[in-house]
Structure formats: C-alpha cells, structure tokens
Design a protein around this nucleic acid. Structure first.
Lengths: 77, 77
DNA sequence: CCCTGAAATGACATATACGTAATATTACGG
DNA sequence: CCGTAATATTACGTATATGTCATTTCAGGG
C-alpha cells in the first residue's frame, strides 16, 4: 500500500557509500570482512537498509550518521 | 550470526522521535494517518526501521536526516 | 468512579533485509 | 590475449520490518 522504499534516497545513500569506499580505498570485500555487510547490494540502490546497518557502515568509516547524511544532503546526490 | 539490531541506537532513535512528537504536539494517530507508520512500535525501541521509513518520519516533522541524527548525537540520548 | 483519548502491547500475514553462496561481468597488469 | 582482482548480479533460506487489526493500560476530565 504505502511506498516502502524511497528510490531517490536509496540512490543517494548508495552513492555516498561508494564515495566513502573510494576515498578510503576500501574494497567491498574488506568492508565485508570487518562488518559482515554485503555492501554491493546496498550500492545497487535496491536495498532499503536499516539504521543499525547504516550505523555499522558509518562506524567502519569512522563518521557519524549525521555526517553521513549531511554530506549526502549537501551534494544533492 | 551478526548482531542485526543495535539496541542503543534504537533507543536513541525512539527517544528522538518521542521528543519530536512532544515538541510538535503530534499524537501517534496523527502521524499514522499522514505517514501510515505505526510509530508506537518504533518508539518501543524494538524495531530496526529502514532509512526510507525514518526519512518519511523526518519529512513529516520537516527536518532532514542529518538534523535528526545531529541532535540525537548531541544529546547522547 | 466512568468515559474518552492516547499510548502500549500483542497477534498474524506479507514483503523484504540480511546471511550465505555462487556465478557473471568488468577492468587492469602481465 | 590471459589471469587476477574487484565489482555486479543472482538465488535461496531465515529473520524481521511493515501492514493490518485488536486488546490492554493509563491519565485526565466529567
């Protein structure tokens, strides 16, 4: 009934994470071994991840959730 | 295997939303009729909501996701 | 006391995130 | 061209968020 996923938001989140990985030269596999998160699925933009999962990702990159979204909003990705 | 939910984060999110509702004098039912989200469950702190759902909540209160988390982090709720 | 609105809690079905694994595709260095 | 690393994509089972509804608890006003 209600729209569960927000495609635009998911694309923005995917892009933000890709950028974080690129900046930190982290492969999907490296991130997976530390967090057990299959980031490829998230980066596909088709997965509506939970806040706990996103928090784990932010912890890995040593940024806060507010920082994650602040830059996402700034860039209007 | 991996811990999916982050109980502390979920409690913080719950508290942040309760506060938003109180500040704006919004009942659970009012929010439900606009967003179709049963916020009571979220405020119980047992639900690991998705980013799209949280985004809908933020939209309702007319704040950004970064603002949502910024205050959450400030208050160390 | 009641009554009412609000919140909290529970149950159940469905959709989907997540855990796990495999395969395919792409990009690059040799 | 080949081999390798990285990414992208797919599939499947399980756990759980979400949709829907009902019940219970609670606080305040009459």
């Amino acid at each position: 009934m209600t729209q569960i996923r927000d495609p635009q938001l998911l694309r923005q989140v995917a892009k933000r994470i890709k950028k974080l990985r690129a900046e930190n030269q982290v492969t999907q596999d490296m991130l997976f071994h530390k967090t057990n998160i299959h980031i490829g699925r998230v980066e596909s933009g088709k997965i509506n991840i939970s806040i706990s999962t996103l928090n784990s990702i932010c912890n890995y990159f040593d940024i806060s959730l507010s920082e994650f979204f602040f830059e996402l909003e700034e860039e209007k990705m």
